[in-house]
């Protein structure tokens, strides 16, 4: 997490340093929010964020609704993808949370499908990556955090606090462990959100920095190769970060359903 933020910081440093030389680096410009039809940005203004969020809805509908419209017993390719995604998240949730977790499958599936489509849409050149913004990932992580906390107390009452009381540890250590557990519990939404946004942002910024070097003819082949390699890595990151976000959501949900250690 720390390395991600310093990477982004380094990209900024490169940007400032480059302004004095012939090279122009603007690796962070791709993350600027712009209104689609001009004017000031108010909370309701349609912006490029709106556009790309809307496209992720379209992608989700295309992937899960249109592809399954034929309800084929022998699936088409697109339908297999929809079924694979369904089975993947369903099994993940069932493995981690057990049968009680299945009730929350639509919520978890919503998170996964949104993040994975937004990540992959962000890989289209000149697109806007919604999941690279903390304004997107923090609400996602906070929603998970609040859901888990409220659900934990509703389901288990005060017994939910047993999550912080490690009964298997020696009695003398338990208060100390409780403090550590409490801190780690409240750090969860921070790491949960910054992990996703940081990974996506850092990769995209690094690609932009390499692209800036392509202006120098001698370096440009290396630059193009580096962009290609980085892009391949980003494809991997796009899926893995969606997976990590979802599996952590499942793990946190398990704490709410079964708070005992």
């Amino acid at each position: 997490m720390a390395s991600e933020t310093t990477a982004a910081h380094g990209a900024e440093g490169a940007e400032h340093a480059a302004e004095s030389s012939s090279l122009v680096f603007h690796p962070m410009d791709q993350f600027i929010v712009e209104p689609l039809f001009g004017g000031e940005i108010a909370w309701y203004t349609p912006t490029n964020v709106t556009l790309w969020l809307f496209l992720s809805i379209v992608a989700v509908i295309g992937l899960l609704v249109l592809s399954t419209s034929k309800r084929a017993i022998v699936p088409t390719r697109m339908q297999s993808i929809a079924e694979l995604a369904y089975g993947f998240i369903y099994k993940m949730l069932e493995d981690i949370c057990g049968k009680e977790g299945i009730k929350y499958f639509p919520y978890v599936m919503t998170l996964f499908m949104f993040i994975v489509t937004a990540n992959f849409l962000g890989l289209i050149p000149t697109s806007f990556t919604t999941t690279s913004h903390f304004a997107v990932t923090i609400p996602l992580a906070l929603a998970v955090f609040l859901t888990v906390t409220i659900l934990g107390f509703v389901k288990n009452g005060a017994a939910f606090l047993g999550l912080f009381w490690v009964s298997s540890a020696p009695l003398a250590l338990r208060p100390i462990l409780a403090i550590i557990e409490l801190i780690s519990y409240f750090v969860r939404p921070v790491s949960h959100s910054i992990r996703l946004a940081g990974n996506v942002m850092a990769g995209h910024a690094v690609i932009k920095v390499f692209a800036g070097f392509a202006a120098i003819a001698v370096i440009s082949p290396v630059s193009v190769l580096a962009i290609t390699a980085m892009y391949g890595l980003e494809v991997l990151v796009a899926f893995i970060q969606a997976y990590v976000f979802t599996i952590l959501t499942c793990v946190y949900l398990k704490d709410a359903l079964h708070p005992s250690h």
Partner: peptide, 17 residues
Amino acid sequence: NQIFWLVITLVVIFLVL
């Protein structure tokens, strides 16, 4: 702005799913 449109997106995706 981002949070507003995000919430709408999530609600739409959730309902569709």
